[in-house]
């Protein structure tokens, strides 16, 4: 495609808008709105990545869990101004680009750890974080995940994490 001449009189190039640069699910974004906006609302209202759920708005329930540089964080109380240059992973970024699921996502389906599903994106993110720290978690380690589920999916979530851990142990790094 031919490049537009720099001095085309009819076109005024838009000035570069200052903003906060973040990498979300391996893609670059620039937030140009209110710097105090929490990551949760940037994901949901601006990018429409609605897998990150609004629950308690108090960093208690874990429905908005995301990974920031691979570490577990609550998006509801993480203002965008703290995130310049950071890499964020949401539930939408767990699967491969070709659609093949993360072992935890597959284990969730296999164990039918679903119910209404509202808390499950946050549960999955917390489980990814757990397995990164402890590839062979005990039931107590899993119970250390304090995400809340009002349907009571905890026993199936525990089974799903154990299933995924067993599968990932055998997989090549």
């Amino acid at each position: 495609m031919p490049r537009l001449p720099q001095t085309d009189p009819g076109i005024t190039p838009e000035p570069i808008r200052p903003g906060i640069d973040v990498v979300i699910n391996r893609e670059n974004f620039r937030h140009t709105g209110d710097p105090s906006m929490p990551l949760l609302w940037y994901l949901r209202d601006v990018l429409r990545l609605t897998g990150c759920k609004y629950g308690c708005d108090d960093a208690t329930c874990g429905a908005c869990s995301v990974l920031v540089d691979g570490k577990l964080a609550r998006a509801c109380e993480l203002p965008m101004q703290k995130l310049q240059g950071h890499r964020i992973t949401t539930v939408e970024g767990l699967a491969q680009a070709d659609g093949s699921l993360h072992p935890l996502q597959q284990a969730w389906i296999d164990e039918d750890a679903i119910l209404c599903g509202y808390c499950q994106p946050g549960m999955l993110i917390a489980a990814v974080d757990l397995l990164a720290r402890k590839p062979d978690p005990s039931d107590d380690d899993i119970d250390g995940i304090k995400n809340l589920c009002r349907c009571g999916s905890y026993p199936r979530v525990r089974a799903a994490i154990q299933r995924a851990a067993a599968k990932m142990k055998g997989a090549p790094k």
């Binding site: 897998g51 939408e92 996502q105 679903i114 599903g117």
Partner: peptide, 12 residues
């Protein structure tokens, strides 16, 4: 709906 839920696509 399991696949949509675990990939964050399910619309509540």
């Amino acid at each position: 709906d399991a696949r949509d839920i675990v990939t964050g696509r399910q619309l509540h």
